[in-house]
């Protein structure tokens, strides 16, 4: 990303091997470690330890109600998981939810960010607050709200309100088939987390220098051209960070599915499969194997995003 600030920085004589040589940057790095070090150690303790424990447990046939029958079985749990259509089905559902929600949220989020960015100054506060309300609601609560709106057994009103649409009748049971259940799950997820994406995009929008836009307009660029050639390229880092964060979060979706269908009609997602195996069946070994695979998927997404799309999480330093 080239902002005026970073351009100025690059123009200074310290360019090139500047960091290795400068005392100032070395002491800055040291200060950075002092400041972040304790948090880093605590993060290791609370995340690395459970991850290693899960890796270790996943190599055992380990059932909480039969601890004395625990047996080391190498990778057999992984063999069972990877050889089971239920795992691949859950993976497919999870990927589908992730791709659709992130894509729709990106478009909606961008529109909302533009609204927040451009809204008349008097309305800006109200608009921002209104947009943020869904994100402030606890996921479980929003899941129940959506469930009751659609559930025909507890008097959901959606069928009544939208019966004029083709395909929606009084008798449509949304949670009795895969397609309709997924629609509700995805819609509630989008409603809930679009504000998050729009906030990240808003910060990106704010970084686009106004003079570039003005210059483009003076040169006679249309609105669409300004958007495509000036705004979007200048906020690429913000977009990629938003996509990465949301994709990682969407991939771990649990609450909505647990509350609305509990995995019925092939709507089971990976987190729910891991939960049902570890907590429901008390099969800690098998459940840990699923959790480890889920973790690997998340790592792969992060890797693809960071390496493949060159997301720079420290992009604000402006030295890419």
């Amino acid at each position: 990303m080239t902002t005026p600030a970073s351009a100025a920085e690059k123009a200074t004589p310290t360019n090139g091997k500047r960091r290795r040589g400068s005392d100032r940057s070395r002491s800055e790095a040291r200060l950075g470690w002092y400041l972040a070090g304790p948090a880093f150690v605590i993060m290791l303790l609370v995340t690395l330890y459970p991850i290693l424990q899960a890796l270790w447990d996943s190599l055992f046939s380990l059932r909480l109600t039969a601890l004395d029958e625990t047996e080391f079985i190498w990778f057999r749990n992984y063999q069972v998981v990877l050889g089971d259509p239920a795992f691949w089905q859950s993976l497919w559902v999870t990927v589908l939810i992730t791709v659709i929600t992130v894509a729709v949220e990106l478009v909606l989020g961008f529109i909302l960010a533009m609204v927040m960015h451009r809204a008349a100054t008097q309305l800006r506060g109200i608009v921002r607050t209104a947009i943020l309300v869904p994100y402030g609601i606890v996921t479980v609560v929003s899941a129940f709200a959506w469930f009751y709106a659609f559930d025909i057994n507890s008097g959901g009103y959606i069928n009544n309100w939208f019966s004029w649409l083709p395909g929606i009748t009084e008798d449509l049971n949304w949670f009795a088939a895969q397609g309709t259940s997924m629609f509700v799950i995805i819609a509630s997820e989008i409603w809930k987390t679009t504000p998050f994406i729009s906030l990240l995009l808003l910060s990106g929008l704010a970084q686009v220098p106004g003079e570039l836009e003005e210059a483009a307009r003076v040169d006679g660029a249309t609105g669409a051209q300004v958007l495509r050639r000036v705004i979007l390229p200048n906020m690429k880092a913000a977009i990629m960070v938003a996509v990465l964060f949301r994709a990682l979060e969407a991939f771990r979706i649990f609450d909505n599915v647990y509350i609305m269908t509990n995995g019925a009609n092939n709507t089971e997602v990976l987190s729910l499969l891991a939960y049902n195996t570890s907590i429901g069946r008390l099969e800690i070994g098998l459940g840990s194997a699923i959790s480890v695979l889920l973790f690997l998927c998340v790592l792969i997404i992060a890797f693809i995003a960071i390496k493949g799309f060159k997301v720079d999480l420290a992009g604000t330093r402006g030295d890419t």
Partner: peptide
């Protein structure tokens, strides 16, 4: 048992 059958629990049956 009506359209709500595939998702009907005890409370839903009672309301029906």
């Amino acid at each position: 048992a009506g359209p709500g059958f595939p998702t009907a629990d005890e409370n839903a049956s009672m309301n029906l």
